[in-house]
């Protein structure tokens, strides 16, 4: 079967810091590479300030809350998670004007059986919600890798700010 190649091979000194669902990680440690593994319909957002050498990654699950928002679930949603995330990067020395922002995910991993919300497939709604939430913060994506049917892993190296996205059976691509 298809094997996954690892982009970490290029960075032998770095250690991968996993960013799970509804989590964010901010790092200024040049030895670290932030990674959101196995993104399906979820979206991973990577932010890097090359002057302050601050890297951040957020892993959102849904576009916006349907019910009550709690402190515990704010990071689950694009709408509530992104403002918190951007603020956290700023608190660690990042400046909005210098931020490079990249996102990946929002796939339809189960094809036609993919979960449909009231306003269409959730993967697409997630990627739209990320773009919108950034706009509301006065920010925009520099580049993105959205849609399709394959799962993705998104990585961001704190030392270089390089962002890679990889899928099963394909070569990792730099974003």
């Amino acid at each position: 079967m298809v094997a996954l190649s690892s982009s970490f091979d290029e960075l032998p000194s770095s250690s991968a810091v996993p960013v799970g669902i509804a989590q964010m990680v901010i790092s200024r440690d040049p030895r670290e590479t932030l990674a959101a593994y196995g993104l399906g319909s979820c979206v991973g957002i990577a932010v890097y300030d090359p002057t302050a050498h601050v890297a951040g990654m957020l892993h959102i699950l849904l576009p916006e809350p349907a019910g009550a928002i709690t402190e515990a679930n704010k990071l689950r949603f694009a709408k509530t998670g992104i403002p918190l995330f951007i603020k956290a990067v700023e608190n660690n020395g990042g400046m909005r004007s210098r931020m490079r922002i990249v996102a990946a995910g929002g796939a339809l991993t189960l094809g036609k059986l993919s979960v449909m919300g009231p306003a269409g497939p959730i993967g697409k709604r997630n990627s739209d919600a990320v773009t919108l939430a950034l706009q509301e913060e006065g920010l925009k994506l520099d580049t993105f890798d959205f849609g399709g049917s394959a799962g993705r892993t998104l990585t961001l190296a704190t030392a270089t700010g390089k962002v890679f996205c990889r899928s099963v059976g394909s070569v990792p691509k730099e974003l």
């Binding site: 079967m1 298809v2 669902i21 593994y37 196995g38 993104l39 399906g40 319909s41 979820c42 699950l61 796939a107 991993t109 189960l110 993919s114 979960v115 394959a150 799962g151 993705r152 892993t153 899928s167 099963v168």
Partner: peptide, 10 residues
Amino acid sequence: TDMAGAILET
């Protein structure tokens, strides 16, 4: 056939 996380996520 895909990444486990991506399959479970849906």
